[in-house]
Simulated assay, not measured.
Amino acid sequence: MTQTPKRPSLATLRENLRTVSDPQDPQLIALQADPRKGAQQLVATIQRRLARQAAAEAAFQERLHYERRFWERNLVVAGIDEVGRGPLAGPVVTSAVILPPDFDVPLVNDSKQLTPQERERLYPIILERAQAVSIGAASSATIDQLNIYQATRLAMQRAVLGLGLAPDHLIVDAMQIPVALPQTRLIKGDAKSASVAAASIVAKVYRDHLMVSYDRIYPGYGFAKNAGYGTAEHLAGLDKLGVTPIHRRSFSPVRQRITD
Score class of each variant (00 low, 15 high):
residue 128 E to N: 07
residue 132 A to Q: 14
residue 98 I to E: 11
residue 108 V to K: 12
residue 98 I to H: 01
residue 95 S to P: 10
residue 118 E to P: 05
residue 110 D to S: 05
residue 158 R to H: 14
residue 57 E to F: 06
residue 133 V to N: 11
residue 104 D to H: 04
residue 109 N to C: 07
residue 75 L to F: 10
residue 138 A to Y: 14
residue 130 A to N: 09
residue 64 L to K: 03
residue 157 Q to V: 06
residue 151 A to F: 04
residue 155 A to Y: 00
residue 137 A to L: 13
residue 111 S to Q: 08
residue 154 L to Y: 05
residue 83 V to D: 10
residue 144 D to H: 10
residue 123 Y to T: 14
residue 108 V to D: 11
residue 86 G to A: 01
residue 136 G to H: 00
residue 123 Y to W: 13
residue 126 I to H: 08
residue 105 V to N: 08
residue 128 E to C: 01
residue 83 V to G: 14
residue 67 E to V: 07
residue 146 L to Q: 11
residue 105 V to L: 06
residue 74 N to I: 04
residue 68 R to A: 07
residue 73 R to K: 13
residue 147 N to E: 11
residue 95 S to K: 10
residue 118 E to Y: 04
residue 157 Q to N: 09
residue 89 A to R: 02
residue 72 E to W: 01
residue 87 P to Y: 03
residue 54 A to I: 01
residue 74 N to Q: 14
residue 100 P to I: 01
residue 77 V to Q: 03
residue 119 R to K: 12
residue 154 L to E: 15
residue 141 A to I: 13
residue 77 V to I: 06
residue 55 A to Q: 04
residue 79 G to S: 04
residue 73 R to S: 09
residue 158 R to N: 13
residue 57 E to T: 09
residue 144 D to Q: 08
residue 92 V to Y: 11
residue 77 V to T: 09
residue 148 I to E: 08
residue 133 V to K: 08
residue 152 T to S: 12
residue 88 L to W: 00
residue 95 S to M: 04
residue 101 P to R: 03
residue 146 L to K: 13
residue 75 L to R: 12
residue 141 A to K: 13
residue 77 V to P: 01
residue 61 Q to Y: 10
